[in-house]
Design a protein around this nucleic acid. Structure first.
Length: 328
DNA sequence: AACTCTTTCAACCGCCCGGAA
DNA sequence: CTTCCGGGCGGTTGAAAGAGT
């Protein structure tokens, strides 16, 4: 049985124009996201509902940060990818300002290649720890690992719930891109000027669009556009610019050698999730979701509250765990 | 300046899942 | 219980821009 197309009418494909963006944003401002099926009909956009949703979630939604991944974000992506595999949505949930698509692109275009280079250089001795790029962790592996490490997770839960730990997790930090030095690595993309938010994105689009459009044309959607102008201001309330923190040095104590090698590759120090408030805030929520989803009924979701230093250690002990898993 | 190769990333495609009917 | 539908996800594509010659 073939699946019906998500939209019955002929839909436009390809890049979104500023006009379309404005219409979509304006509509969502008014009605809120959701009921995507109705969006093309109600807005008159010749786009399929999926396309509208995607455009909103990946580009127009407030608070989205684009380009210029920070050191901290990069570390998180690498670790989470190793932990979760190519589950970009889950990974993105740890980086609230990033979309799964953005992370996926960043991984595929840059991090993966970098890791592959690293692997080939290390000839499988160290590189295999992070080789999930070529061999993503399967769901079964993930579950086995979860069970294998359940005791550690329980212990970690206790630790994580201690007030002292929680306080330390929420300490602000300074993470400027200027500190970002991954050897010869260039910024994510030549044209990925760090868009602070979607408001900026749209503002840029608008700027160019206004140049090329007469007022008459612009006024063909008077209400939408006027209200959108105001909407942008509201949307711009999300000030996401340069708010990331630089991780203080420190990080995991275990697997020092591995970390050092890895760090030398990426030019930064071992991951210290305790310094990342965003991460720590989202960790309990999302990790519990992930773990509830992924773990078998008998397992606990204690990992949800696990301090990431432990997860990291666990991750870095992959060799051992991998060997354990094969025995199961 | 012109051409080719490489890289980036926005967007599409198809599958899957959960909820409603 | 089954079917349908909307939404979400991950893999992939291809246009555009940059880099190299």
């Amino acid at each position: 049985m073939g699946r019906l197309p998500c939209c019955d009418k002929v839909v436009k494909k390809g890049p979104w124009t500023p006009e379309e963006d404005i219409i979509l944003v304006s509509y969502i401002q008014e009605h809120g996201p959701g009921n995507w099926r109705a969006v093309p009909t109600n807005t008159g956009l010749s786009r399929c509902s999926k396309s509208c949703r995607l455009r909103w979630t990946n580009y127009l939604k407030p608070g989205i940060k684009r380009g210029n991944f920070t050191k901290q974000e990069e570390k998180m992506i690498i670790h989470l990818q190793a932990l979760l595999g190519n589950r970009w949505a889950a990974i993105a949930s740890y980086l609230p300002q990033r979309t799964d698509n953005d992370i996926k692109n960043y991984w595929n275009t840059y991090l993966k290649k970098r890791l592959e280079k690293f692997e080939s250089r290390s000839e499988g001795n160290l590189g295999h720890v992070y080789n999930s790029a070529s061999k993503p962790i399967t769901r079964g592996q993930w579950e086995r690992r979860l069970q294998t490490d359940i005791n550690m997770a329980k212990k970690a839960l206790t630790e994580a719930l201690s007030p002292k730990k929680i306080l330390s997790l929420h300490e602000p930090n300074d993470n400027s891109i200027s500190n970002y030095d991954i050897g010869s690595i260039k910024p994510t993309s030549p044209n990925s000027l760090c868009y602070a938010s979607n408001a900026d994105n749209i503002a840029r689009l608008l700027k160019g669009w206004m140049k090329n459009h007469s007022p008459n044309k612009a006024s063909s959607k008077p209400n939408s556009i006027l209200s959108t102008q105001n909407s942008f201001n509201n949307l711009a309330g999300f000030d996401t610019a340069s708010s990331e923190g630089t991780p203080p040095s420190g990080g995991a104590k275990g697997s020092v050698e591995l970390c050092e090698t890895f760090e030398s590759l990426f030019g930064y120090e071992s991951l210290d999730y305790s310094s990342n408030s965003e991460f720590s805030q989202s960790l309990s929520h999302e990790a519990s979701t992930v773990c509830q989803d992924e773990s078998k009924p008998g397992t606990t979701n204690s990992i949800a509250e696990m301090p990431f230093s432990l997860l990291e250690k666990w991750l870095l002990d992959d060799t051992k765990i991998g060997a354990d898993a094969t025995l199961l």
